[in-house]
């Protein structure tokens, strides 16, 4: 099971808390999936924050605050500082957004923010791309987890670059890796886990499904199945057929 900064999490599914039809459905989705980590944001308090805080603290999942919507190092660092005080955790899902259409990470600012936050004692979970040199810089900046996107946030496209994700896995066999963003179907979650990733983080695919609770359960099952398959050492694909039934001993019938 995933090990993040020395803490073992009992599920390979990490779930966001946004966009559910109701707080009750959010709580049911967590119950149905046994997701191990819940991501939250920080937003201006307009009256709802106190109830929400009680809700997420009762989910039975570790809380991972994010810096969603931050476009600069300064914004991300200040947001992380506020999150640490509010939630009593030094974990931070670091997002520094570079492009508003794709919500892709600004990897240059990301590395800078990761170094600054690590120096301040944070345990950084960077939302990054599958680029190997960026990954290397993030690790050098002090990150002990990497969270490359599968596809743009909320797109549901799945794994846009499975070869790149596979290369990342091979390059950093000891680093916990999470596919964060882009997962739309359970098959995407299973594929990520089959590649050897330690966990998947998703939100929209569950929260916006017709039945979020059933989809949360399906995602958890898929992540578990993909993990089990990876551990079971799957066969390599081949171009031509290979008979599974023995050829020897077939009756001669002509």
């Amino acid at each position: 099971m995933p090990l993040f900064y020395g803490t073992e999490i009992a599920s390979p599914l990490m779930l966001g808390t946004a966009q559910y039809p109701s707080p009750a459905i959010l709580a049911d989705a967590f119950r149905a999936s046994s997701a191990g980590i819940a991501t939250v944001s920080l937003r201006r308090e307009a009256g709802g924050g106190q109830d929400f805080l009680r809700l997420v603290e009762g989910l039975g999942a570790a809380i991972l605050p994010n810096t969603a919507g931050c476009h600069s190092v300064k914004e991300a660092v200040t947001t992380a500082q506020m999150a640490r005080e509010l939630l009593g955790t030094d974990w931070i899902k670091l997002e520094v957004i570079g492009h508003s259409d794709l919500l892709s990470p600004d990897v240059i600012a990301l590395v800078e923010a990761a170094a600054e936050l690590t120096a301040q004692g944070f345990k950084v979970f960077p939302y990054c791309t599958e680029d190997l040199s960026v990954a290397e810089r993030l690790l050098r900046a002090g990150c002990e987890v990497l969270m490359p996107w599968g596809a743009p946030i909320g797109s549901g496209l799945g794994l846009n670059n499975p070869h790149g994700l596979r290369a990342l896995r091979a390059a950093f066999p000891e680093v916990p890796l999470v596919v964060d963003a882009g997962i739309g179907r359970p098959s995407h979650a299973a594929s990520a886990m089959e590649l050897g990733f330690d966990a998947v983080l998703l939100n929209t695919a569950v929260a916006r499904a017709g039945d979020p609770v059933a989809m949360a359960r399906a995602m958890a099952q898929a992540a578990e199945a993909g993990r089990a398959a990876c551990l079971a050492d799957p066969i390599e694909p081949r171009e031509m057929a290979a008979p599974s039934t023995p050829v020897i001993g077939k009756a001669f019938l002509q």
Partner: peptide, 10 residues
């Protein structure tokens, strides 16, 4: 002055 609380997030 910004005053924030935890909210829904992904």
């Amino acid at each position: 002055l910004e005053i924030v609380a935890p909210m829904q997030g992904g």
